[in-house]
């Protein structure tokens, strides 16, 4: 049983790492800002979620799991909002840095 659980978390963590790598590849290969934002928001959030799911196995207590869950939600909310803001500034061209 323990071995099965270990195997499961290793698989989850490896899958998470794969999505992180996909995000990096997308960041480098995709042609413009908007398409890169796609890779950033989707692949990374999924990768982080999978890694955290895999790490649940090593959590010392329930609060730690809750912290990971909150962290994931925070990252998703801030990632989606940040990409919206970046895209909006780029689209309207009224940012201070363009």
């Amino acid at each position: 049983m323990n071995i099965l659980l270990d195997l499961l978390s290793v698989l989850l963590i490896l899958a998470g790492a794969f999505f992180f790598i996909a995000g990096t590849v997308g960041l480098l290969r995709l042609p413009d800002l908007f398409t890169r934002l796609h890779a950033l928001t989707k692949a990374d959030n999924l990768g982080l979620g999978l890694i955290m799911l895999g790490c649940v196995r090593f959590a010392p207590d329930g609060l730690y799991i809750a912290k990971m869950l909150l962290l994931w939600l925070l990252i998703m909310a801030s990632g989606a909002t940040a990409s919206h803001l970046i895209a909006k500034r780029a689209l309207r061209g009224d940012g201070e840095d363009y």
Partner: peptide, 9 residues
């Protein structure tokens, strides 16, 4: 930002 997310991982 990508760095931040990976760093958390």
């Amino acid at each position: 930002q990508l760095l931040g997310t990976s760093g958390i991982g």
